[in-house]
Amino acid sequence: MKDLGVMQPLLRVEGLSRSYGSRIGCADVSFDLWPGEVMGIVGESGSGKTTLLNCLAGQLEPDGGAVLFDQGGVLVDTVTMPEPQRRRLGRTDWAFVHQHAHQGLRMNVSAGGNVGERLMAVGARHYGDIRDQALDWLGRVEIAGDRIDDRPSAFSGGMRQRLQIARNLVTGPRLVFMDEPTGGLDVSVQARLLDLLRGLVREMGLSAVIVTHDLAVVRLLADRLMVMKDGHVVETGLTDQVLDDPQHGYTQLLVSSVLQV
C-alpha cells in the first residue's frame, strides 16, 4: 500500500470460458482480485460457480481465457504455465478448501499429519518443528491440542472443516479458493466457522474467492460479489450494494428468496 501507483491485482481473470460439449460451464468471465480482498461468487446450482472456481485453481482446464497470478510483481498466466509450476503454486501460494472435508483431507492420516503434509511437501524435514506448527494451527482453528494424533474420521463435520482450513493455511498462502466452505454444517457450527474464517482472513491479509449459494456467508466474508446465472456473470459490485440494491432480475429473485426468520 506504500506506492499506490504500481499496485496491481493479485489475480486477474480475462475472458475465462469452459464448456462441457455444447453445454456452457462458464463463459467469458473477467475480474480482478486485489491483495487482501475477498470475492464472493453466488448463484443457483448449475450456474457455473464451481466450474469457474476449478478453472481458477488449475483443477480444470479452461477452454479459453487467462488466469494471471502475481508472482514477484509480474502477472503470470497459470493456464499456460508448466504443470510442475502450477502444482507448486497449489501447495505454496494457493489453498483450496473443499465443500466436503474428506475431499481435502487424508482421512487415514492423523490431524497433525494432515496439517504437516504441506510443510513436508515444501521441504520441512524436522519432526519437532512440523509438530509445533501443527499444534499452533490446530489451536488457531479451535481444535484441542490433544486431538493432534486422532484421525479426521474421529472428528465431527465442523472439526473436519476447521482441520481442512488449518491444513491449507499452514504454509501461509496468499490466495484461498473456497467451495461452499459451510455447506452441510448446522447453523451454529456455520456461525463459528464463519467467525473463524473472517478472523483468519483479516489477520493474515488473505485474498479469497468464495463460491457459495448462501448469501449470509458472502454478507459476512466478501468485500465484493459476483452473481452468476447460466454460466454468465450477471451482476458485480460491492457486497452490500448488490445485496441491498440488486439491479439484475435474477439477483433480485435471489435476494428475495432468502427466508426471514
Binding site: P84, R106, G113, E117, M120, R125, I130
Partner: peptide, 29 residues
C-alpha cells in the same frame, strides 16, 4: 497413502515426495 496410480506416477515424475514423509511422521506421532 495415495491409492491413485495416475497420481503416484505424476508425483514421481514431478518429484513430489512430501507424502512419503507424512508416513514417517505418522510413525513417530
Amino acid at each position: 497413502l495415495e491409492p491413485s496410480e495416475v497420481e503416484t506416477r505424476k508425483m514421481h515424475a514431478l518429484e513430489e515426495y512430501g507424502l512419503m514423509h507424512v508416513k514417517l511422521y505418522e510413525d513417530i506421532s
